[in-house]
Design a protein around this nucleic acid. Structure first.
Length: 194
DNA sequence: CTGGGGATTGCCT
DNA sequence: GGCAATCCCCAGC
């Protein structure tokens, strides 16, 4: 059994930062993850799993180490890594990464954009990797490679999640401090004012 | 069956 | 900073 799946079991806010620096490969492109966001299943009002299992979020309720893919704003696909334990319905949204292999393919998918813009933002990262609806539920064995030694805690920054209109006070966005590929923070237009 | 809204992005002023 | 694009999801009737 893949040892890395063990890393995905635990409190999702502890699991999420462990993905930073990990390598995700799909469609001929490899991305080094630089920014992620944690969603805590049924307990998290911002999670797609908050209102229980549906056809869309069913993968979240399954075993860890699989890809949860959803369609957003009528045009974008976004990807999560499902975390455990089985039935917990926690997931980590992949928000940004650095393309470290397959840059030529990634650039074609991203309409000529390059450099830090290739996989900056969850929909951009997903597009660069060529992930769409068909990859919902994909077993990440052989796709996701986590480093044996996590990045130093001091290199990880935390902050509020991007775009969510509820539970905006929960600092469950994690990114590599000072990394140029990290997406710009955008508060949800529907989030309550302070 | 229907309608409001969304874990976004990129182009506009 | 504002906002349109675009369609699937799901809560509610």
């Amino acid at each position: 059994m893949p040892g890395w799946a063990e890393v995905l079991v635990g409190p999702v806010d502890a699991v999420a930062p462990r993905l930073l620096g990990g390598l995700l490969t799909h469609g001929g492109v490899t991305v080094r993850l630089t920014e992620v966001e944690a969603y805590d299943g049924a307990d998290d009002p911002a999670s797609h799993a908050y209102r229980g299992i549906t056809a869309r979020n069913a993968v979240m309720f399954g075993p860890p180490g699989r890809l949860y893919v959803y369609f957003s704003y009528g045009m974008h696909w976004c990807a999560n890594v499902v975390c455990g334990p089985d039935g917990r319905a926690s997931a980590v949204l992949l928000r940004a990464g650095e393309v470290v292999a397959g840059e030529r393919v990634a650039r074609e998918r991203r309409g000529g954009r390059s450099g830090a813009d290739l996989a900056r933002g969850p929909a951009n990262l997903t597009q660069a990797l060529g992930i769409q609806r068909h990859q919902d539920g994909l077993d990440l064995t052989g796709h996701l490679e986590l480093s044996a030694t996590p990045v130093p805690e001091a290199a990880v920054a935390t902050g509020p999640r991007v775009g969510v209109s509820v539970a905006h006070d929960v600092p469950w966005r994690f990114w590599l401090r000072d990394d140029p590929t990290v997406s710009a923070y955008r508060r949800s237009p529907r989030a309550p004012r302070d």
